Simulated scan of single mutants.
Amino acid sequence: MIQQIYPQVQHNYVFELNKDMHIAAAHFIPHEDAGKCQQVHGHTYFVNITIAGDELDESGFLVNFASIKKLIHKRFDHTLLNDHHDLFSSTDSNYFPTSEGVAKVIWEIVQGELDKKMNKPNCVQVFVRETPTSYVVYRPKHKEGAQ
């Protein structure tokens, strides 16, 4: 894997982990303004997920790296993103499988799993590079009382 440089998110947590992965997937954008991206085409997405927290779990991890890869890579690699009807929409532009939509959906999946953990880590950033010259960063708004 080629080393990537991606934006850093500021936080006050003690621990931060970053999980990188490549996902080969196809998609199309269901909107007339998408131009040629309305046609099915593929990318090798580079994804970086940043998780932060103050407490380790009972096995000494903030989060096990393998569990994050399994959660995201196994689900999306070598798929047509538009076929994930439970995650992406053909009518709600907030859930089109654009880079922005992919980053948001990955955050929702990851944070949903993190919310089940006793040590309560938080996904503070999802970076999705669609091409060598184009990427998106998704950072959730801070919850009231969160760091």
Rank of each mutant, 00 (worst) to 15 (best):
L62D: 01
A52E: 01
P97Q: 07
I29M: 04
F61T: 06
A103H: 07
S59G: 03
D92E: 13
A52K: 03
V63L: 06
E16D: 11
H84C: 09
C37K: 14
E58S: 14
T79Q: 14
I51E: 02
D92V: 09
H22T: 10
H84F: 10
S59R: 13
F61Q: 09
G101L: 04
H85W: 09
F96I: 06
F88I: 01
H78K: 15
Y95D: 03
Y45W: 05
T44M: 09
H43R: 04
H73F: 15
Y6L: 03
L62W: 02
D77F: 14
K104F: 13
P97E: 08
A52T: 02
D20Y: 06
H84P: 03
N12D: 15
A103M: 08
F65L: 06
F28V: 00
E100T: 11
S89Q: 13
E58N: 13
A25V: 01
E100V: 06
H27Q: 10
L80F: 11
V63F: 11
D57R: 09
H11G: 05
F88E: 01
H73R: 14
E32L: 13
Y95H: 07
I72F: 03
I29P: 00
M21G: 03
T44L: 10
Q10V: 01
G60S: 10
Y6N: 03
D54A: 01
D20H: 09
Q4F: 09
E55W: 00
D57M: 07
H73Q: 15
N12Q: 15
V63C: 12
G53H: 03
T50R: 05
T79G: 10
G101S: 08
D20R: 06
D92A: 10
D77H: 15
N64T: 08
G101T: 07
A52W: 00
Q4H: 13
D33P: 02
F65D: 05
A24M: 08
D54P: 00
Q10C: 00
E58P: 03
Y45I: 00
H85E: 12
H85F: 04
